[in-house]
């Protein structure tokens, strides 16, 4: 009855929780056991980026075809992406408090993510301010597509040019090597897929409810 990918999502989520806590991890100072947050915090960012990318794709689709269902999808994916963003931000702040010593450090990646979330907040405000459906769809799609490359420059290019506390960037390249640990990889990649599938599932339900809502209001 339910499609296969939902089952896959459930299995991978259970795998993430079980293997994430039971498989061995490299013993690193300061991080200690909190390195397991990699499966729960970092994956939030991956899920957020994937959802936001999908929302951009639907915005471009809307601009090329002017079909309102594409706009609806773009909005719903953006909402789920924002949800992951909030989860990632809060978990990240807690983790940062215990490893870097403060809830908020001046780090390029943190700033980039904060800016991306501000941009999405602006996107939702813009959606609320326009009065009719087609105008709202057109304006918000243009805004999203216009802002996206600048965000990418912020999130991907800028951190490579300046120092970051995050692994694998300018100031501390050696720190990135825990990513290469094979045990962690075995959980990390499935965890990304699991959380992303969960988000896609939630979004699909939201889209279906919205569609029902629109149809009954006709």
């Amino acid at each position: 009855m339910h499609s296969v990918w939902k089952i896959v999502c459930v299995l991978l989520l259970f795998y993430t929780v079980i293997a994430g806590f039971l498989l061995p991890v490299p013993a690193l100072p300061i991080l200690n056991e909190t390195i397991r947050n990699l499966y729960f915090h970092v994956t939030m960012w991956f899920a957020m980026i994937i959802h936001m990318a999908i929302s951009i794709i639907y915005s471009i689709k809307y601009l090329s075809g002017s079909q309102l269902r594409n706009d609806l999808k773009a909005e719903q994916y953006a909402i789920t992406g924002m949800m992951f963003g909030v989860a990632g931000l809060i978990t990240g702040m807690i983790w940062a408090k215990f490893t870097w010593g403060a809830f908020w450090v001046n780090d390029v990646k943190l700033n980039g993510v904060a800016a991306a979330m501000l941009m999405y907040a602006a996107y939702f405000i813009l959606r609320n301010s326009a009065d009719d459906d087609t105008k709202r769809a057109r304006l918000s799609a243009v805004y999203l597509v216009f802002a996206f490359p600048l965000m990418m420059a912020f999130i991907y290019i800028l951190p490579r040019m300046t120092d970051s506390l995050h692994p694998g960037n300018g100031g501390n390249p050696a720190f990135g090597k825990y990513d290469l640990d094979n045990h962690m990889r075995m959980v990390f990649y499935p965890a990304i897929i699991a959380w992303t599938l969960l988000g896609l599932w939630i979004t699909s339900i939201r889209i279906r409810i919205k569609n029902l809502w629109n149809e009954t209001n006709l």
Binding site: I30, L165, N172
Partner: peptide, 14 residues
């Protein structure tokens, strides 16, 4: 911040 970064490099080598 530089202190923090050098700390992390050190810790990563540890």
């Amino acid at each position: 911040r530089n202190k923090l970064i050098s700390l992390f490099v050190l810790l990563a080598l540890l």
